[in-house]
Design a protein around this nucleic acid. Structure first.
Lengths: 205, 205
DNA sequence: AAAATATTCAACCAAATAGTTGAAACATAT
DNA sequence: ATATGTTTCAACTATTTGGTTGAATATTTT
């Protein structure tokens, strides 16, 4: 065997990922995954046994990709303003390549919180303690307002993710086509950096 | 006939709303709706013909409730700081009574953008022009930073909604039980007012 | 080349789910 | 009280969808 996973197996996996992200677990059809992978339906079962097992694998891979990207940037020792820029760049780059991912993760996570919890615990995925420490330090040094780091972190992530999660809402209410939506995202980076840093009255060390 | 809509008809509608919000269109089962309404399954078809028609009615009612609540508050002539407080109070009150609604609307909206667009246009639902005018006015008068009103509006809505949309994520990563989550939301109001107003360096007229 | 192994798929089957029916119970009007 | 229309539901059918099978084809090993 030349590869660990056959071409077909990977083709199925990627097709399944796309279909599950588009339609969700309940809305996804095994036939649609087979069509998207350009193979016969029985191959799905040959490689992944059943819909549930196939979904679990896709779900776990996507969860494993989605959170560490944010958390890794957050854990660095860069000053907050640089960190924020890197965070936005990194995450918008990722979401641009995976536009349905945020919606997928959030939906399936809420659909089955226990599955999410146990997987996150098993894999040891968690927000870095460094971020809260960095905030507390800046507060002590009088370089920003006293804020709850948890409130701040959730706000930052929410500000970045929201346009992707609620994309249809943004496009419909502001009459954006795809091009205008991308322009909006591009403009959002400087807006967010400024808005967030002003929001906590941050000053560099 | 004493009422326009029979008790049963309304019971079905409310049950359907709960089930569709919990499970989404594809995940909802007609039997589950019948059980939740405590009636026989055939009554669903007697009153609403089929799953799709029942869903449309539920979807349209919820969309009609969800957006106008925000937009009405935004269209008032109150100064921005008071408006923001009212907005947060109003929306957290609403979401507290309807905790699955934000997730539902956003998911089904993304699932079928055309349906969302045409319904929104048909009903004439849109963000109030007054808000953008108010922002532009405050900018002109030098009472806040020059910001794009669209970026600001989406940020405000995102900051409010995000904890509800991503509730499981918040609870898992910060190890919140329900009580702690509610405490978090209570603390979020003053945090957001301060964060947002500082974010744009707002001063009252 | 022959044997062993992996891959492919059309045609099935089984289970889940949406939707229907007709008779019985109930309510209302005359 | 009788007739008329409304509401209810158990049992049923039709359709969709997940899952299986076995024979044919391709690939790899010896």
């Amino acid at each position: 065997m030349s590869e660990n996973k056959s071409d077909t197996e990977e083709q199925i996996f990627e097709a399944a990922s796309r279909v599950f992200q588009r339609k969700g677990y309940a809305g996804a059809r095994m036939q649609e995954i087979a069509d998207e992978a350009d193979i016969n339906k029985s191959m799905l079962h040959y490689y992944y046994r059943n819909k549930d097992k196939l979904f679990q694998k896709v779900y776990q891979r996507e969860v494993s990709r989605f959170f560490p990207i944010i958390f890794e940037v957050l854990s660095s020792e860069d000053p907050l303003d640089e960190k924020l820029e890197r965070l936005i760049d990194t995450y918008y780059g990722f979401l641009n390549d995976n536009p349905t991912m945020a919606q997928f993760i959030i939906y399936e996570m809420n659909q089955n919180p226990d599955r999410f919890r146990s997987f996150i615990e098993e894999k040891g995925i968690h927000p870095p303690a460094e971020f809260a420490r960095q905030i507390e330090e800046a507060v002590e040094e009088g370089r920003m307002d006293a804020v709850d780091p948890t409130q701040l972190l959730i706000s930052i992530v929410g500000l970045i993710l929201f346009p992707y999660i609620a994309r249809t809402m943004v496009e419909v209410f502001f009459e954006f086509d795809e091009k205008q939506f991308l322009k909006f995202l591009k403009e959002r980076k400087p807006f967010l950096v400024d808005f967030i840093l002003s929001g906590i009255n941050y000053q560099r060390p």
